[in-house]
């Protein structure tokens, strides 16, 4: 079998395995990781009415993984009557962040400008984080929709990081690191992260050292959080498919190694 054909067969197998897993209705409890529970308890401990910055620091390509994380967190924020203030350090995160906030706000009958706000994108993320530490209204004179932020009730009393309970960075790359390095280290604002699974190991040291207050990651993190808030979503739906896909990858690794070992043995015999 040539390599192109075997590659296509491997992809087709994964496609079928994931499709079947997603069509099978599955229900069951997920064991909640301590890190996810820590994030849930942190948000749960914030007094209602408090403002929290939600930073959408991701690109469109990470949306399948980011969306369930963001929705679960926003639902918890709105359920607790917190006032999320959306920002974005990456241009692509702007439209996505606004749409996600809008969708969840609708579910909880929240009004834009009063119960939440979206300030939009600022380039040069380091400058943006530092500038917000000096003055949020000077960094964002207007919100995403062009409304002066001093006319938004949700922004009343918010001048610097001292006036918000923390920053919740929803990221697919290293942006959360910059929040830690410039927001937490310089201004002491608590940073929590909801990141793609690939980034978890990069942020674990910051969580262990106390530079981040909480961290949650990947589709599994989303499923755990959905269980904690009692609202199902993309995380719970994709969990069986994820387990099946992992088993599939393991099977492929074993089969690949066995085939390689057999080919090497044959080659050895031929050379003798």
């Amino acid at each position: 079998m040539n390599s192109a054909l075997s590659r296509r067969l491997a992809f087709a197998g994964l496609f079928i395995a994931v499709t079947v897993a997603m069509l099978i209705p599955s229900e069951g409890d997920v064991r909640v990781a301590p890190e996810t529970r820590q994030l849930y308890e942190w948000i749960d401990s914030i007094p209602p009415g408090s403002q929290v910055i939600v930073s959408f620091d991701h690109e469109a390509s990470a949306l399948p993984e980011i969306r369930p994380l963001a929705l679960a967190l926003l639902r918890h924020c709105f359920e607790r009557d917190l006032v999320p203030i959306g920002v974005s350090l990456l241009a692509e995160g702007t439209g996505i962040g606004f749409a996600l906030m809008d969708q969840t706000a609708d579910e909880y009958d929240k009004t834009y400008g009063e119960d939440y706000a979206f300030l939009g994108f600022k380039p040069q993320f380091i400058a943006a984080i530092l500038s917000m530490g000096e003055s949020i209204p000077a960094t964002y004179p207007e919100d995403y929709l062009g409304t002066p932020i001093d006319s938004l009730p949700a922004m009343v009393g918010v001048t610097t990081y001292d006036d918000v309970v923390g920053v919740l960075s929803i990221a697919d790359g290293s942006m959360t690191t910059h929040w830690v390095e410039y927001g937490e280290a310089r201004f002491g604002v608590p940073i929590a992260g909801a990141v793609t699974a690939a980034m978890i190991t990069s942020y674990d040291p910051y969580l262990a050292s106390g530079q981040m207050v909480a961290l949650m990651g990947g589709l599994r993190g989303a499923a755990e959080y959905e269980q904690l808030i009692g609202i199902g979503g993309g995380g719970s739906r994709g969990l069986l498919a994820q387990s099946v896909s992992h088993l599939y990858v393991l099977a492929m690794i074993i089969i690949g190694n066995l085939l390689w070992w057999r080919a090497r043995r044959r080659k050895g015999k031929e050379s003798v």
Binding site: V18, T19, P64, A197, A198, M199, G234, R237, Q242
Partner: peptide, 27 residues
């Protein structure tokens, strides 16, 4: 151990992206 863990998480992340798109297609 670090590289292995990171690689495992990266595979998990890529699978999640694929599953997310499959969810969109099927649902």
């Amino acid at each position: 151990v670090f590289f292995g863990t990171t690689f495992g998480y990266t595979v998990m992340s890529r699978m999640s992206t694929f599953i997310g798109r499959m969810e969109f297609l099927l649902v």
